[in-house]
Amino acid sequence: MSNAENLLQNNQLADPSKQQRLSQLLARPDIWQAANEHKRQRGGIASGFSSLDALLTGRGWPRGATTELLVNQSGIGEISLLLPALAELTQREQMVVLVNPPFIPYAPALASAGVQLEKLLIIHPRGQKDELWATEQALQSGCCGALLSWQGRQAPVDKDLRRLQLAAREGDCLHFHFRPQSCAASPSPASLRLQLGSDGDQLAVQLLKQLGGQSGQRLHLARSADLVRRDQPLH
């Protein structure tokens, strides 16, 4: 056998292990291949809005990742956007944690949206340090289905956001982070960033960033007809 033939055979032998390594690499969630687009796992958690699901790569909220929701003012339907997913998670016996919500979560509204109230945990840590600690602990515990956190007065630094994103991946937890729209310009490690605004009776959603998918699309979601129905004014 000539030298060249030998080399060729060696190469062929080495091939399977290389192939394996390559496929391991390609299986990573943060590597996106255009060719495999149709084969990708649809691992997301359905948001309950089919038009929104169609835009998201996982056909739903990305699991084990941070989703940033940029909202300037509450009341435009930002929680209603999440409620179907939260209801689904609590019905699957998973915990949903709210860290420092700006108001009292009103039990009758949540219950009528289908949220199992006994699976809802509200924590009020004092100070940013405790808040970040509690958020990280809850995210990585592996027993929370979703965690909602609101940015306090002080914007967390990039390092902390990255830690939370990693914690969410470790604990396979949906992390929704509400931030003001002024943060839109600053980079963030979140895998999905949505800017929420109001447009008439509708909730306007703009995809600012999506890991492994397209971004820039706009979407209008109608609010519940019960809410926006206009009665004849009495006064």
């Binding site: 009292i104 979560p105 039990a107 009758p108 949540l110 219950a111 109230l117 006994e118 809802l120 945990l121 509200i122 924590i123 009020h124 840590p125 004092r126 405790d130 600690w133 509690a134």
Partner: peptide, 13 residues
Amino acid sequence: RLGHEALSGVTLK
């Protein structure tokens, strides 16, 4: 770490 009072849940009444 946070104390007993920092944790709560909600129920209907």
